[in-house]
Design a protein around this nucleic acid. Structure first.
Lengths: 110, 110
DNA sequence: AAAACATTTAACCAAATGGTTGACAGCTTT
DNA sequence: AAAGCTGTCAACCATTTGGTTAAATGTTTT
């Protein structure tokens, strides 16, 4: 399923809006893992973790490869790039606000 | 309501996972607007836009100020900084993948 | 070929999401 | 004080989400 740019941002940001899924990405940043290994530290069922993986997969944040009876999962960070670029557009606004504050404080001391 | 770091990321990423809300942020990047001005370009009701604003506000991505009978809304980009930092942790992974690809392609030509 | 293991899928459930309409509340104008 | 704005809130609805358990699928071992 090919997604529009907006739809891809939708799915990436949605995937990131859950602490379980962010935690999974952190673990995968260390190394690739099987589904079972990913699920173990979580209190929920394996099926629930499997669903989270599907969400991450449809956002193209992970990729799976079947190796024997194991499904091995690895991080695919490329999709995050668009998200970061989207946010980067706004970075000037928080810097601006800081600059304005600094100017205000400088003016205040005179 | 004070949120944990994870909860704040939850609410920011959730707020960004909707095209209407991202569009609202874009408009506010140009200048502050009243709720009515924000709603006009959208096909949905004013109440629906009001709900979207509430989501953005609870993610601290916007701030409101009452001015007479108007509610003036402005961008508050600072919350995006955490989100960007969270993503930045992964930037090395997409660069790494690119590097690996380049190395692979170089090796291939020899 | 049967048993055991790794994972997904299906059916279900409660809660959250994104929209609607209509009533309400706060200013401003008359 | 009544009418007319601007915007929110409440009640409702359909859909999606995030979880569960049980059944199904595919692979390996016995």
């Amino acid at each position: 399923m090919v997604k529009s740019s907006a739809a891809r941002l939708d799915s990436v940001f949605h995937a990131l809006a859950d602490p379980t899924r962010r935690q999974i990405l952190r673990v995968l940043a260390t190394s690739e893992r099987t589904v079972g290994e990913i699920a173990k530290p979580h209190k929920m069922s394996l099926a629930a973790v499997s669903k989270h993986l599907k969400v991450l997969e449809s956002a193209e944040l992970i990729a799976r490869e079947r190796r024997g009876s194991f499904h091995i999962v690895r991080l695919q960070a490329r999709s995050l790039k668009q998200a970061e670029e989207w946010i980067a557009f706004y970075s000037r606004f928080w810097n601006e606000q800081i600059d304005n504050l600094e100017r205000y404080l400088e003016g205040d001391t005179e």
